[in-house]
Amino acid sequence: MSLNKMDLSAAVKKQLNYKMKVYVGMISSLVIVQVIGIFFSVVSPLQGYSTMDYVEIEYMNYNTLNIITLTSLWALIHAIIMTTKNEWENAFPFVGNTLSNHLANMIFLVGASIVAGIVTILASFTVRVYLYYFTDELFFMSPGFVLNGGDLLAGTVTVILHFLLLCAIGYFLGTVTRLHRLLPVLLPIVVIGLLITINYINHDWMMNTVEFYYGETSMAVFLMKIVVTAGILFACSIAISSRTEVRK
């Protein structure tokens, strides 16, 4: 018997294939999240009431933010779950190392973000179709109800990038918690505490951060910002766990 060789790209490829089998549950949970999102979008619109002279207007504002919010949570939570010790070991396949396992996970999350983005846009169509045919009240289409090709593409890419950012944040936080037994409890407290403190010292900080990413008007720059941020978070995740031992 001669010795076999295995290089990183071959290992990542095999592991990615493995992850797709192992994490099929992620897709079914995505579908459930989307259905719940659609349901909320349809049954609980923002209700408003306004009067102008003798006219009273009662309106219902339907939007698909619910779907995006729920799917964001889905992305964040799944990325965290992937890094938990139990999942890490269960999904650690036969041949590989920490780096190849990270890379396979990350490529998988990029793929998952793309799928989630597309599904989210499709779900928003479902809501549109429902509203168009099934609401009997006076129906006003807000700008953007009918999408043109450019908007559609930009919207899809934006949602995908948004999910990718959340995956990267979740993955990074999850990896950090594995550094010490107490971190799963401490980290959420520290993170939330920090956010509150920073917000107290500098009111605009949070707004500015959100503005930095989501206020961006140029698609190319937005894409750059997200990709670089996600890249840094993923790289940090790899760096801090390079000495991690598997199968304790």
């Binding site: 010795l3 295995m6 290992a11 041949v95 190849s100």
Partner: peptide
């Protein structure tokens, strides 16, 4: 440690 060539040849 973390060696892919060892990983594929040792179980």
């Amino acid at each position: 440690f973390q060696n892919l060539n060892v990983s594929v040849n040792a179980i």
